[in-house]
Amino acid sequence: MSEVIMRVENLTKKFPVSDGKFLTACDDITFDVVKGETVGIVGESGCGKTTLLKAIMNMQKPTSGKIIFHGEDITQLTGEAKRQNYRRIQMIFQDPTAAFNPKMKIRDIICEPLLNFDLIAKSEVDAKARELLTQVDLPADFVERYPHNMSGGQRQRVAIARALALEPEVIACDEATSALDVSVQDTIIKLLVKLQREKGITYIFICHDLALVSMFSHKIAVMYLGNIMEKIDGDKLSGARHPYTHALLKAVFSTEREKNQYIEILPGEIPSPLDVPSGCPFRNRCTYCQEICTTQKPPFEEIENNHFVACHYPLNKAH
């Protein structure tokens, strides 16, 4: 039986804005993360994916809810216990250029977390940096370089090496491949999968590209306006039943698509999170909206094994 490493329970994050209103970035989110698996979180900009990740990283305190990691609620940690927790959860950012100090050499960038936790002596830095670079398939003599001497793909590998340095159990990736070319993106994904097999790392991977996420995620959660609309096994994505997931699937431009095939377009734009519609958050863009959708928020229910949908009228199959 697979072991649940992290459990997010009823996580809600509201940001206060002017006039005493609140911006709801994450609304009552619950999901499990299984050890050694990848959870892909997909959604459009402004749907709260990054806020969710920041809560998991313990960089932002949620308004309510729990994140259970190794039997304790990490959102309640303070001081040294909180700092030690960072050793177990590391992060890879979207833009590797902005994630590094441009005046530090790669050697110091990679080993800074180790020095912060007094895990190695200064004399061991060089050897350790070389070892980590080899793990991410970069030449060991890159230790002498600065971030600007490298290509985007190489920098992202360095970011992975730095995340690996503390041997974390969970790595959170925030759009880690979005800034890269498709061919580079492919090699980075292969590297992440290889490392997962070797070390049993758990990934929480945030991305807006459903096709990319479907390639390597064990579980996929689709977010919309701070809510998880559907959660499904990665290999069963074609059996998605939420109208929003269907819309996302149809919006992917495939090179295998027949020329001039009619593209079905989701009308309108994502509503402001300051002004979330009553009932189902997706209702004013949904073609299947019924009266009950405007008044009652659909519950997040398990309709098949490991397949959760928040919809009053889930669709039958992907078409």
Partner: peptide, 29 residues
């Protein structure tokens, strides 16, 4: 377009097309 996408001749085009993420084409896990 159809010729290039369906029957790429150059190796670079082939590798570029192969690295495009496609729904339901291949999975790494």
């Amino acid at each position: 377009t159809d010729d290039v996408v369906k029957n790429p001749r150059h190796n670079y085009t082939k590798s570029l097309l192969a690295s495009v993420p496609e729904m339901g084409r291949r999975r790494y896990v």
